[in-house]
């Protein structure tokens, strides 16, 4: 577990602390960014194995845009992405539907906020296992 690095992007520092604690407690290495730009920079310097992205940051679809930008970089085309969402929030995006179109939302899974430790860990393990199977 120690060699798995997770990129966490969210504009709410209080939420980042909570998620970071849960992940580090489970042995993951976490690098955190607070917006789309920082997230992209950290991606290139830290080379994470998985990304967890908040959907609404400065812009209502920043998370979507970041996910699409990541998938366009050949090296990270296959990087597993988990969206951290307020599904029933202002945008009204239906994530199950959005994820069925990889061009619209190229994510592997989504977790509805608030984050529950067990759900988060379980989702990460599932996504990583699915990725390992594909290889």
């Amino acid at each position: 577990m120690a060699n798995i690095k997770i990129l966490l992007v969210d504009d709410d520092p209080d939420l980042i602390i909570a998620v970071q604690t849960i992940l580090e407690n489970k042995g993951y290495e976490v690098v955190a960014a607070y917006n789309k730009k920082e997230g992209l920079e950290l991606l290139l310097t830290e080379k994470p194995d998985l990304a967890i992205l908040d959907v609404m940051m400065e812009g209502t679809h920043d998370g979507f845009e970041l996910a699409r930008a990541i998938k366009q970089i050949p090296e990270y085309e296959k990087l597993p992405i988990i969206m951290l969402t307020s599904v029933d929030s202002i945008t009204g995006v239906n994530f199950k539907a959005a994820m069925s179109d990889p061009n619209w939302l190229p994510a592997d899974e989504y977790i509805d906020k608030p984050v529950e430790p067990n759900d988060l860990i379980e989702t990460i393990e599932q996504v990583l296992a699915a990725k390992a199977d594909k290889r």
């Binding site: 709410d12 909570a18 604690t21 202002i90 608030p114 984050v115 430790p117």
Partner: peptide, 27 residues
């Protein structure tokens, strides 16, 4: 209502996520 509730939900999500770290006893 949508605007206000959305903002409240953001705060609640942060509170609950932090509390869940303690409540789940992972620490």
């Amino acid at each position: 209502v949508l605007r206000v509730t959305h903002d409240v939900k953001g705060h609640l999500a942060a509170i609950q996520s932090n509390l869940s770290v303690l409540n789940s006893r992972i620490l």
